[in-house]
Amino acid sequence: MNGEAASPTRRIVWWNDRFVPEKDVRLSPFDRGFLFGDGLFETLRADDGRPLYVADHVQRLGEAVRHLRLEEASGESASRSLLEAPWVWRDRIAKLLARNGLQRGPARIKIIISRGVVSGLGLPRPAALTRLILAEPYMPPSLEDYARGWTLRTLRHGWTPPTACFKSLSYLFYLWARQDAADAGCDESLVYDKDGRIAETATGSLVFLNEGRCVVSASPHRLKGTAEARVVALFRDDGWIVKEEDLSAENLARFDALWMTNALVGIMPIRAIDGRPLPRLFRSRAARYRDLFFRRGAENSLATM
């Protein structure tokens, strides 16, 4: 099964504290995650059976749980389970990878928390959460893709939603943005917030670069990526100047290069926006920091054992 997706009859998922075959998972049609997208998720990468930066993702998930009132009414709070020691989550995910034969090569992990079945308007306290962890093979971009870089298309109709700072299950906006880019022959979508500030892409964060200097978006209407935080920390370790600024379309000409970051691809240079080439890609530096990002992730995984 290594490197190949298991069939639904053989694939194993972690569901509400149990490892079960995918075909045995039962989701109520009244689950609010299904009805409203009322829940959260985190996507992370594993390499050779080792999940990367688990603690970063669990911390972000736990913070969103508290903001969105996802603690269970029974007192057995979701936040308590989410704040288990990182090695508990790492071990849980590693076991899931092993049960699916995903101990070699890259894999995609998805943690899902839904409010479950509960009545009421607004954000009622859940009686019992629906919790899932999914694992499947992941095919990263090729070395040629990384060297060539991706292209962005500006989303012209729409802006990031008020819930953009959370990894919400209500993800249709970002799927729409990604499809808009694909329909135009581009790799990713460049998304602005309601105030005209550059926010993010459909699936990642952006870092704007000059020699020895990095700027990230100060928009409050975006998701602050776990990969972005780790990459920016690597820059600071190397003496880079790192700032957070409001950025508009007119500011793009200030920068030599632009990278997208997320937990799966690491760092992807951007070669053009709306058909306009960027001055540079900083390819060799992107490759070095990407390798360092994934290597530190593997070391981080071992440290949580």
Rank of each mutant, 00 (worst) to 15 (best):
T304V: 01
A253C: 13
S248A: 02
D48E: 04
R69C: 04
A303G: 05
L258S: 14
L82V: 02
A135C: 02
P51F: 01
K95T: 12
A298E: 15
R236M: 11
A181D: 03
M139H: 06
Q103D: 12
G297W: 04
I93A: 08
G225A: 01
D145K: 11
A253H: 11
W14A: 09
D91H: 12
Y146E: 11
T160P: 08
S168R: 05
L209E: 02
S81P: 02
R296S: 01
K243F: 08
V265Y: 11
H221A: 03
G122T: 09
R295Y: 05
P137Q: 14
D183G: 03
T304Y: 05
H67K: 14
A94H: 01
R213F: 10
S77M: 13
L155M: 02
H221G: 00
D47W: 11
G196I: 08
L252Y: 07
G33I: 00
L152G: 15
L252C: 12
Y174H: 06
E72L: 12
S217T: 04
L61M: 06
R115E: 10
E228V: 06
P137Y: 14
R115H: 12
D246R: 07
K194F: 02
L190Q: 09
G3S: 13
M305C: 08
L175K: 15
S284T: 13
L27W: 03
I133D: 04
R32L: 09
F166G: 01
S170D: 10
L27N: 04
T163N: 10
R69L: 07
N100G: 04
K110M: 12
Y53R: 05
T154R: 11
A98W: 02
R60K: 15
A227P: 02
D91E: 13
A85G: 03
I113L: 14
Q179W: 15
S74I: 01
A286Y: 00
D291C: 03
C186T: 04
G75F: 09
L44H: 15
K194R: 10
S301K: 06
L68S: 01
S217G: 06
